[in-house]
Structure formats: C-alpha cells, structure tokens
Simulated assay, not measured.
Amino acid sequence: MSKRTTIHDVAKAAGVSVATVSKAVNGRYGVASATVERVNEVVRELGYESSLVASSMRSRATGVVGVLVADFEPFSAEILKGVGLALRDSRFDLLAYSGSKHGQSEGWERRSLSRLSGTLIDAAIIVTPTVVGASSEIPLVAIDPHTGRADLPTVESDSLEGARMATRYLVELGHTRIGFLAGRPDLRSAVLRESGYRLALSEAGITYDPHLTRVGMYHPRTARDAAMALLRIPRPPTAIFAANDLSAIAILEVAHQIGLEVPRDLSVIGFDDIPEASQFSSPLSTIRQPMRRLGAEAAKMLVLLLNGEPLPATHLVLPTRLVPRATTAPPRTDSAQADSSRRR
C-alpha cells in the first residue's frame, strides 16, 4: 500500500508553509497567483485522492473535528482524551491544534480558525477562548467559555458550586483566614469560582477581605508570584483555595520554598483534579470537574450540528465534587500559627 500523501507533503514539494497550502486551495486572500498555481500543480502531481486537502477541494468536507487549545497543559490534555473517546465510533477524526504561540495571546482562536476551516476541519471545539465570539462558517462549541455573551453552544463545569464546596470545606476544618488565588478574569469559570468563594465566606459569617485574594491567571508562573505575595502579607492566610490545580501546585512550591509545612502551617485546595494532583507525596485536595466528560459532551454537540440535528441543550453545566486529600487540615493553634508567621 502506498504512503498516504499529506498536506505537509504538498507544502514541502511546493516550497511553502502548510498555512499557505490551506489558503491556496481555498482561494483565500494573501497568496500570490504564482504560488497558488504551484500549489495546485503539486496537488495534481501527488495524486491527492485520499488526502484531506483533496477531499475538501472536491466536497468541501474533511470528516475531521478540530480541538483548538492555547496550550497542551493538563486540563486541555484531559479534554482531548474525552473528545477522542466520544469520536471513536463516529465517522469523524480528531485534529488537536495549539493556536497560541505566546501563551494566552488574545484572538488566537480566530487565527486558528482562519488557517484550518474548510480545508482541514469541518467543525471545532475551542477550549478556554480569549474572545467572546469567533466568526466562522463551521460549527463551533466552547469549553470553559468567555465571560461575554456568545451565540455558540458551551460546555462547562459547575464552578460556582465547586468553589463554594472548597471554601466551605476549609471553613468546616476551622479556618477563618482563607486566601483565594483567582483564575483568568475573562473566563466565566474564574468569575464563578470567585463568586463561590465569597458566597461560602458569607454563609459562614466571615467578612470578605480583599487582601486575601490574588490573581493567578490559571498559570503556574503567575500563580507562584501571587502566592508569594499572599503569604508575605502581615497576617497571611491559614488556608488557600486556588482556582485550578496548577495554581495550587504553585502554592505548594512557594510554601516549601519559604519553609512552611503543608498542611501543618498551610492548607491548600485546588480545582480540576488533573492526574498530577494525586501523584504527589502529599496528594492535593481539590474539586473534581469531569474534564473528559466536558470533551465528550462537546464532541457529541458537534456531531449533532454536523448531522443537521437539533441540540437538546445549547449550554451544558456538569456537576463537580469535593476530593479531600493530604494538603488540608484544621489550622494550628494561635500561638503556633503566630510562630509560623514570624518565620515567613
């Protein structure tokens, strides 16, 4: 059996990029006519009968669903596994694409869709978008959507209740100075997790203290700086709820760096339950969201849209649950905590 020709083969033979091949075969603006002719000649020469590019040129369909992520971090990896499982018995293949070369650069979804739509993918799942909407001629579903109003289907976890459970759990352990490391403020999940944190404090009769909140942006490097600042204030928290597990892990690293023992000196709880959360010598307490199911439900939505079928619901919210582990415990006595604070 002869080797299947790919779009990368076409790009190499034509001496252009994959993006240029995509634009050329779709007649998009920005490619010189001589380049378009060269690309089309290569397509004909290579006998593209089974390739995605050739089939899309003939039928305007590829049979491929794209998952667009800013970065292949643990949350996105679990989403991809869920999408893959949901598509296993369907007629659609999966293409995973990281469209942000600079972390969370705004608008990476639009650039990615411009490159992939019509030639490589028939529909897309966008994970943690940076914009309210992404104009496209193909069906789209967003996972962990933006705070702004978007006219596309969305799938997310119950961030409000999850954050409420995490904070209430720390309160029930006896903590009253509870810090919060917030996520990306442009994502609905981050806004709801802060609301859940504040709600649980209010229900416990604890006054919200803005000095106990820092923004970690869901990113380890930013979270480390935020955690250090939070633990250096005159009266630091005895417990911290982080809006995602990567931020919680960053808190653990900072605590170790400045000589705090977890959970004796500081309790830490995250949100996600990524695989890494249970693999530490002291496994991380967290709020579990069904990440693989998020991907699976988004994939099911796309398949229905591609088949021209109505969606049972356009905005799906999945439940979360508390997973207590080794990084949370009741606070130390006032005298012991004071000694710990002086060491910081």
Rank of each mutant, 00 (worst) to 15 (best):
I7M: 15
V10P: 06
A14Q: 05
A19R: 02
A19Q: 11
T20M: 10
V21A: 05
A24V: 11
G27V: 05
G30N: 14
V31N: 12
A32D: 13
V36I: 15
L46E: 09
S50V: 02
L52N: 13
S55K: 15
S56M: 04
S56H: 05
R58W: 08
T62N: 03
G63C: 14
V67S: 05
L68A: 15
A70I: 02
D71A: 13
E73N: 15
E73C: 05
F75A: 01
K81N: 15
G82P: 00
L87Q: 00
L95N: 03
K101S: 14
S105T: 12
R111S: 13
L113I: 12
L113P: 10
S114M: 13
D122S: 09
T130L: 04
V131Y: 02
S136G: 05
E137G: 15
I138D: 11
V141P: 02
I143S: 01
G148P: 06
D151A: 14
V155D: 06
D158A: 10
L160S: 02
L160I: 04
A166G: 05
G174Y: 10
G174A: 10
T176A: 12
R188L: 15
G196T: 03
L199Y: 11
L199E: 15
Y208D: 07
D209N: 12
P210L: 11
T213M: 11
V215G: 00
G216T: 06
M217G: 01
R224K: 12
M228W: 04
I240V: 15
N244A: 02
A250E: 07
E253P: 09
V262S: 09
G295F: 05
A296Y: 02
G308W: 04
L318N: 10
T320Q: 02
A326M: 03
P331I: 03
T333K: 09
D334G: 08
Q337W: 13
R342N: 04
R343D: 12
